[in-house]
């Protein structure tokens, strides 16, 4: 392990887009009171894949790598909808996933929001509507915000999260 710590110290911090942190500081100042009231200072997200190709999930996982380190902004992916403020919904809302996505949403305590992730849930991806697909998601849920892209890259996702925090306050 000593070799690991040596390497770790040599390489230092690789996290990028530091400007997001200062942006967040500004937002925090602007909205501190309301954020504290609504989110107790942090934003908890429950990711639900309703029938994607897994690229959107891979990009959400990438948000935790050292370059992006999403949690420094106080935004967390949580294991249960009961811990969440927001449902982040990717995929085409398949016929088979529709009841489960609705269940997950019902489990989130109010106040709650839905952000759609990627082109699939809004039917902007190349897939066509058929018997197995219930998208666009807007016909089944009240969607607050959308992150476009196929898939949106991690930085775009982070920027929209901040935009979202600003908007709902």
């Amino acid at each position: 392990m000593i070799k690991f710590w040596n390497k770790r110290v040599q390489e230092g911090i690789v996290t990028e887009s530091k400007e997001l942190e200062s942006e967040l500081t500004v937002i925090k100042k602007e909205i501190q009171e309301r954020v504290t009231k609504k989110f107790a200072g942090s934003l908890a997200i429950r990711m639900v894949d309703s029938g994607s190709c897994n690229a959107c999930e891979a990009e959400c996982n990438a948000l935790s790598n050292p370059y992006y380190d999403l949690e420094r902004l106080g935004i967390y992916f949580v294991a249960s909808p009961r811990h969440a403020d927001v449902m982040l919904l990717s995929g085409l809302l398949t016929f088979n996933m529709t009841p489960h996505a609705k269940d997950a949403y019902a489990q989130i305590p109010a106040p709650k929001w839905i952000i759609t992730l990627g082109d699939c849930p809004v039917m902007q991806a190349p897939f066509e509507k058929n018997y197995a697909i219930n998208a666009p998601v807007g016909e089944h849920f009240h969607v607050t915000h959308h992150i476009a892209g196929c898939p949106p890259n991690p930085l775009e996702i982070m920027q929209v999260f901040l935009e979202f925090i600003r908007k709902i306050s």
Binding site: D49, G51, S52, G91, L92, T94, F95, N96, M97, H100, P126, F127, E128, N130, Y131, A132, I133
Partner: peptide, 22 residues
């Protein structure tokens, strides 16, 4: 099969070029 999107059916009747992005 929760993610079943009916891809096989979706591609029927398309040219190879049209099918590629899917």
């Amino acid at each position: 099969f929760y993610k079943n999107r009916g891809i096989e059916k979706m591609l029927e009747g398309k040219t190879l070029q049209e099918a590629k992005p899917i």
